[in-house]
């Protein structure tokens, strides 16, 4: 695995001058993942913050071939690109080795793009799908998605007299993807470069479909200071809300184990979207949150042979 200094020698594939918000987690994940590619990369992008903010005509922040066409189809689009690559290789019209990657937010992956993702995984295209997961539809203004955690305030799960934010737990997409039996699936975070680069490198080297679900904070939606981005993401890992693990050819492995599992409240406390949960009358929700995280964590430890 390359060091940061070695990564810095590689070409900058996402240039400055993009218009993502200050302190956004998404471009951190994208820069690190693209730096992990030791061969040329072609990317597809679902509609979302990353897409709109990096390609405001006539500007593009992409130093690599890149395509966006719609919201729900990043996986299908990259499958088409990869198929053309295969066809051209077969006909001897191209000989370079190229990696293919698709980026989608959680809305474009957990929700509207799930079918296209599932189809592309099942067909076995050689590509990496990256879900940069900021746990809501941030591009349209912070609406809840199926990746939004329990109790979170969003503009479509507002906190009112009757409802305390989102009333459902999030869907476990990483497990859904793993159930496809593809060669490489991982969950990572933009606050741990080593973990993310290592996984991206493995994914790029995988002969078949691979998937990484990267937690990437949106400070506007999560309601924290831009400078706190790394801290807030890392707390999700330390509280075992967002465990870092991988499933390589069906074998689960925990890639990071917090020295001391922190209470979920520490993560909730640093984000405005959970502020209402800290009120005494919502204590039971924090407890439910904790119970859910504990159960999921225990299940994962078992799968990883750590329990």
């Amino acid at each position: 695995m390359p060091t940061l200094k070695e990564l810095a020698k590689r070409p900058e594939r996402l240039t400055p001058g993009h218009r993502l918000c200050a302190g956004c987690g998404a471009p951190i994940a994208v820069r690190l993942i693209l730096a992990a590619a030791d061969k040329p990369v072609v990317a597809a992008n679902a509609t979302g913050c990353l897409e709109v903010s990096t390609t405001i005509f006539p500007y593009t922040a992409w130093n690599i071939p890149w395509i966006h066409s719609a919201f729900e189809n990043a996986a299908a689009t990259i499958a088409g690109v990869e198929s053309m690559y295969r066809a051209k290789r077969r006909r001897g019209e191209i000989d370079e080795e190229i990696y293919f990657v698709a980026f989608g937010g959680d809305g474009g992956t957990y929700d509207i793009g799930l079918q296209a993702l599932s189809g592309a995984l099942e067909r076995g295209h050689r590509f990496l799908y990256v879900c940069y997961n900021n746990e809501a539809y941030m591009n349209t203004g912070i609406q809840r998605s199926s990746a939004t955690p329990l109790g979170a305030w969003t503009t479509t799960s507002p906190v009112g007299r009757v409802l305390p934010g989102k009333t459902q737990w999030r869907k476990n997409l990483t497990e859904i993807v793993a159930a496809h039996g593809i060669p490489y699936v991982a969950q990572s975070v933009a606050s741990n470069w080593r973990d993310l680069v290592n996984k991206a490198e493995k994914a790029f080297h995988t002969d078949g479909p691979s998937f990484i679900n990267v937690l990437a904070s949106c400070n506007r939606g999560w309601r924290h200071e831009p400078s706190e981005t790394l801290k807030v993401m890392q707390l999700a890992v330390e509280c075992c809300i967002w465990p870092l693990y991988e499933v390589e050819n069906g074998v689960y492995r925990l890639t990071y184990k917090p020295k001391e599992k922190k209470p979920v409240e520490e993560w909730l406390r640093v984000q405005g979207r959970f502020r209402h949960l800290l009120a005494p009358e919502n204590r039971h929700l924090v407890e439910a949150f904790q119970r859910y995280v504990d159960e999921e964590w225990e299940k994962l430890l078992k799968r990883c042979g750590e329990a």
Binding site: G17, F57, P58, Y59, T60, A61
Partner: peptide, 17 residues
């Protein structure tokens, strides 16, 4: 609607944010 100048966002300055 294609952009052929890869990475030309570099010429767009966001420093004034």
């Amino acid at each position: 609607g294609i952009i052929c100048e890869a990475g030309n966002a570099r010429t767009y300055k966001t420093g004034d944010w």
